[in-house]
Design a protein around this nucleic acid. Structure first.
Lengths: 123, 123
DNA sequence: GATTGATATATCAAGTTTCGATATATCCTA
DNA sequence: TAGGATATATCGAAACTTGATATATCAATC
């Protein structure tokens, strides 16, 4: 299991949001599921990141009031904060991936030829 | 220009050392040259890293006394610390690259199909 | 009706990492 | 003799990471 660092976190979260609006908890489950449990983004990594994305205008947010069926109808209920990727966020995701490609290509240039020949390539 | 993070630093430094012994200053120049100036590992990143590699037994070291031709033959002269990759270091480099490949493959699974179709792939 | 586990958002503090600045000293060339 | 390159190394402020903690609801079991 690998704890995601900021760069990868941002790429992964934006990628998940590229397929439609979601919210913190669901995103973290999605990341674990789609990585076969290999990637983990914990609450303390997720929420500060989402706040950052919001401040940078890469996502917009709305609150959903989750009404309980069984309890007091006046109760505030659980709240869910939805994140929707903006056009700016979409562009940022593309940039992110392009940048990763560039870095990978350079990085691959450092891999010794002997290893590259055995299929150990990064790009 | 991109400052290398620890993971990438280790991979790049071990890759350089895979081609033969070298020393801090030369490695940093090699990194800048072979990345067309895109990667930079500054002294404050380089020396602690080399010390770490040494402590982990991934490299062995020897000091070279660089004798001056023109000055006092008794002068201590400049010292150069050579780093030689060990068998353990060689194995670690392979592991490093294999691990990167694995992470990249998973990461690529998050990239939206629409972007992957335009050639924006990470693995 | 009480307990448990899952859902859901969020912060804190301690630890680690990063990186520009600094320190020291030699060598070479103009 | 001054400046730029060579060479190793540390410091401290800022940023980042992450386990722990806090709060609260909901659903299912006991």
């Amino acid at each position: 299991m690998l704890h995601l660092k900021q760069d990868h976190s941002e790429l992964v979260v934006l990628s998940v949001l590229a397929e439609g609006p979601s919210y913190g908890y669901a995103i973290s489950k999605e990341i674990a599921a789609r990585s076969d449990g290999h990637f983990k983004l914990s609450p303390s990594g997720m929420y500060p990141l989402l706040t950052k994305l919001e401040k940078q205008g890469l996502v917009t947010t709305t609150w959903e009031e989750i009404k309980s069926r069984s309890s007091n109808p006046d109760a505030s209920g659980r709240k869910r904060k939805w994140y929707t990727m903006s056009v700016k966020g979409s562009k940022r995701l593309t940039q992110h991936i392009e940048n990763q490609q560039r870095v990978l290509k350079i990085l691959n240039g450092f891999v010794p030829a002997s290893l590259r020949e055995s299929g150990l390539e990064l790009a």
